[in-house]
């Protein structure tokens, strides 16, 4: 029974066991450890230590001070404003990003490359400039300043300006996440749906969205993180009015400038905590995507084994 030596099962199992380290493709032990040490030292200096510092500084004067710094009215109003800005910017950019990615990935039209460049513009422009643009357009001396003040409308140094600046800086995240994904998937499935008699709306909800849902969620998480953390653009349009136009990052800066370190770090720790939650969500989404991909791979192997 010579076939017994080359059962396909053994080949399949090898994928599930640990990959043996091959001497031929790895560096000597001391080089490996050196590189790992450098990476770890770098990570702790630039990431772990600051993160730990935020929490220890925030809690330095005790837990009571920490809580009171957060429940203080100005802090609460800053938290509320941050959440409002994110709550408006994220859904809007979800729609914009999805529409832009859909158009770019699935259709051919003139000016497509210009559209792609425009989507990247917020990444290329300094956030401070982004804020200034809105001051120049909607500010008192700006293009629409007179008209706005005549109608008793406030954009700059008010919530609409903050929301606008937030939308601007977070604009590319979802589109950038979706374009490569949708391009890779092509439009054959949509065409199949069309030939089978589905309407545009049915194709969108039943075929396109399920195919991109993890990428979309990933883009939303990134957008949300940036929306809550944005400092530069928001700082220019906000006017730093306490309890009215301060977002969390701006509130932290004000407290810090007033030498109120404990309170500043307490609010900052809240932002850091939000960032950590974002990271956990992001890892979960990545893990789900990888799991789907792995499942497909394993099934391919099983099929191969069945067909041998």
């Amino acid at each position: 029974m010579p076939q017994a030596f080359i059962t396909p099962t053994s080949q399949y199992i090898r994928y599930n066991t640990k990959v043996a380290r091959s001497r031929a493709t790895s560096e000597p032990l001391w080089i490996r450890w050196l590189l790992i040490t450098i990476a770890l030292v770098f990570l702790s200096l630039f990431l772990f230590v600051p993160l730990a510092a935020v929490f220890t500084e925030g809690l330095r004067k005790g837990f009571a001070t920490y809580i009171s710094a957060i429940v203080e009215p100005d802090a609460l109003s800053a938290i509320k404003l941050t959440l409002i800005a994110a709550a408006i910017a994220v859904p809007l950019n979800l729609v914009f990003g999805l529409a832009a990615a859909w158009a770019i990935a699935k259709f051919e039209f003139k000016g497509k490359s210009i559209l792609i460049t425009l989507i990247d513009l917020p990444f290329a422009v300094s956030p401070v400039i982004a804020g200034l643009i809105y001051v120049l357009i909607f500010g008192l001396q700006g293009w629409f300043g007179e008209w706005l003040s005549n109608h008793d409308l406030k954009v700059v140094f008010a919530i609409p300006g903050i929301v606008l600046a937030t939308i601007f800086v977070t604009f590319p995240f979802i589109a950038r996440e979706l374009i490569p994904l949708m391009q890779a998937q092509g439009k054959e499935e949509e065409e199949a749906g069309l030939v089978l008699g589905a309407s545009g709306w049915q194709i969108f909800w039943r075929i396109t969205i399920p195919n991109i849902k993890w990428g979309l969620l990933y883009g939303v998480i990134l957008t949300n993180a940036r929306a809550m953390g944005e400092f530069g653009a928001v700082s220019v349009v906000s006017g730093h009015i306490r309890g009215l136009t301060n977002t969390m990052p701006l509130h932290v800066e004000i407290l810090y400038n007033e030498y109120n370190y404990a309170a500043a770090f307490a609010v900052a720790s809240l932002l850091a905590f939000l960032a950590l939650i974002t990271l956990v969500l992001k890892s979960y989404v990545e893990w789900q995507t990888a799991k789907n991909a792995l499942r497909n791979e394993v099934h391919k192997l099983i099929i191969r084994r069945e067909s041998i």
Binding site: E188, E189, E191, A192, I207
Partner: peptide, 10 residues
């Protein structure tokens, strides 16, 4: 219509 690369809804 039957597509070359099947185009099944994955």
């Amino acid at each position: 219509f039957v597509f070359q690369h099947y185009a099944l809804f994955r």
